[in-house]
């Protein structure tokens, strides 16, 4: 078990020699699975593409001046009027699909990671509070968690978007409300075990303020399972956002994520123009699978029960 508090209060430990630090052990254990490394590399590549999309795409797919309607619905590999090749074809507006996918990745990843992060903050805080306070606070929070987890995520998201309407912010809110319960449950479970340890008792004896005990002492020791859940939830959030956008309840048409790109190609599917939907779907699939592969390995490495 990594002891983050010990590291935090005693930075005097020299790090230059080859002492096996928890972090190094973690890295070497993670690298044991080639599949997971592959997943990590693919995901890093996807993230880089998303970040640098405006500089590497041949066109800005949302600058109407750069679009030529004459290039509409071109097959993959054709060269358009602007002089570059549409490797993945174009959609009905003459938009290069490759550029569209790269920009779509930006939105999908931002919404997915952003909502997972906020949900993590909210869920972890409430989970910690539930475990530390116990009693009525605990049962109130956990009742809410149980209630919410008894409904499928898509239904909860659908309900919230039916109230709030479309829009990126509303999708993020919906995803946060869907996801916080998973974090809360995970953190509470770990924190219940951790709060009985001596270091918490010691911190309480020092009369440290509650928030300090919660966030500086308890939280760092609940991190391993939290990281695993967070990784998986990012993938789930991206998939759910894509689904909602596909249904026309998610992001607006001006900021299309991968799900909306797929929805746009839906009507052309029946006339055999498969590429408008096919390639964004592949991008979505590769993103989700790579995150899940990394998450799987993290779960194996960070699970104390599997420790040798």
């Amino acid at each position: 078990m990594s002891d983050a508090t010990a590291n935090g209060t005693a930075p005097a430990t020299p790090r230059k020699d080859k002492v096996e630090t928890p972090f190094r052990r973690f890295v070497s254990e993670f690298c044991e699975s080639k599949v997971a490394i592959g997943g990590l590399i693919v995901f890093t590549a996807i993230a880089l593409i998303a970040i640098f999309a405006p500089w590497i795409t041949p066109q800005n797919p949302y600058d109407l001046a750069q679009l030529d309607i004459m290039d509409g619905r071109q097959e993959p590999g054709t060269t358009g009027g602007a002089g570059f090749t549409f490797w993945l074809g174009t959609d009905d507006q003459g938009r290069d699909m490759m550029s569209g996918i790269m920009y779509g990745l930006r939105i999908s990843l931002t919404v997915g990671a952003g909502s997972a992060l906020i949900a993590c903050l909210v869920g972890a805080s409430l989970g910690l509070l539930a475990a530390y306070a116990g009693g009525r606070t605990d049962s109130a929070i956990m009742r809410l968690v149980d209630l919410q987890l008894s409904f499928p995520s898509i239904l909860v998201a659908l309900m919230i978007l039916a109230f709030l309407g479309k829009g990126i912010m509303n999708v993020v809110i919906a995803l946060v409300i869907v996801e916080w319960a998973y974090y809360a449950r995970t953190v509470r479970g770990t924190a219940l075990v951790e709060r009985r340890r001596e270091y918490i008792e010691a911190a309480q004896c020092l009369a440290l303020p509650t928030h300090r005990i919660l966030f500086r002492h308890l939280l760092p020791n609940c991190l391993p399972p939290l990281i695993v859940v967070a990784t998986m939830q990012v993938a789930r959030a991206i998939a759910l956002e894509a689904t909602l956008s596909f249904l026309g309840l998610g992001v607006p048409i001006t900021e299309p994520s991968l799900g909306l790109l797929i929805a746009n190609g839906y009507e052309y599917m029946l006339s055999g123009k498969y590429w408008i939907s096919f390639y964004p779907g592949i991008a979505l699939l590769v993103t989700i699978v790579s995150i899940n592969l990394v998450g799987d390995q993290l779960r194996d490495v960070l699970n104390p029960r599997l420790k040798k």
């Binding site: 894509a242 799900g259 599917m269 979505l284 699939l285 989700i288």
Partner: peptide
């Protein structure tokens, strides 16, 4: 794959 594939996209591919 069955767990990771987005349902709606698989549906589209089935139609295709």
């Amino acid at each position: 794959l069955g767990f990771s594939l987005p349902t709606f996209w698989v549906g589209l591919m089935l139609i295709m």
